[in-house]
Amino acid sequence: MKDIAKLGMYLLIVCSVSGISLAVTNHFTAPRIASEMERRKNEAMSDVLPAASKFVKSKTHEKVFEGFNYAGARVGYVFETLASGYSSDIEILFAIDNEYIVTGVKVLSQSETPGLGSKVSGDEFLKQFKGKSREKIMLKKAGGDIDAVTSATISSKAVTEAVRSRIYEFQKDTK
């Protein structure tokens, strides 16, 4: 019995020391980690909605941020959406202005085929979305204005559809 008590005691001491050192490390790193996340998020949103300087989470819609300029006027909306790609979920961040015209699209994460579907993260594909309204946001093969990435129709379609349907839903909701 005394044996087990000794073993337990020893483990307890080791765990306590461990717990304390982790709490200390966490205390010092947590603020940095939190502010870095905040910064990255704001940077990404500024990228897709350059006219805005401040972003506020929408109180009426989920996964939507409203962008405001210095004067306090709302200049557009930023959306986080997920597309079902060829081999992965594609995390997309995009923005529209008050007239529902796309101001920018950014891919936050994806695991599509490297060299093919992965090119949907690239500027060449994404810059096509800028300045277009919902009706034009379809692949050229379907009558729209977006050129798919060569040999990566599925990935391209996934992103295009995700953006378009999101705008459609939002437009329906707010008109």
């Binding site: 073993l7 020893y10 483990l11 080791v14 050192s21 982790l22 490390t25 966490n26 790193t29 870095e36």
Partner: peptide, 27 residues
């Protein structure tokens, strides 16, 4: 280290440093 608990002790030690490096790299 009492021999009977050496594996749990190793695990706690290694896990502690793993978490430390995790937090430091994240920061």
């Amino acid at each position: 280290i009492p021999p009977k608990v050496r594996l749990p002790v190793f695990i706690v030690v290694i896990a502690t440093f793993t978490t430390i490096v995790d937090l430091l790299m994240n920061a």
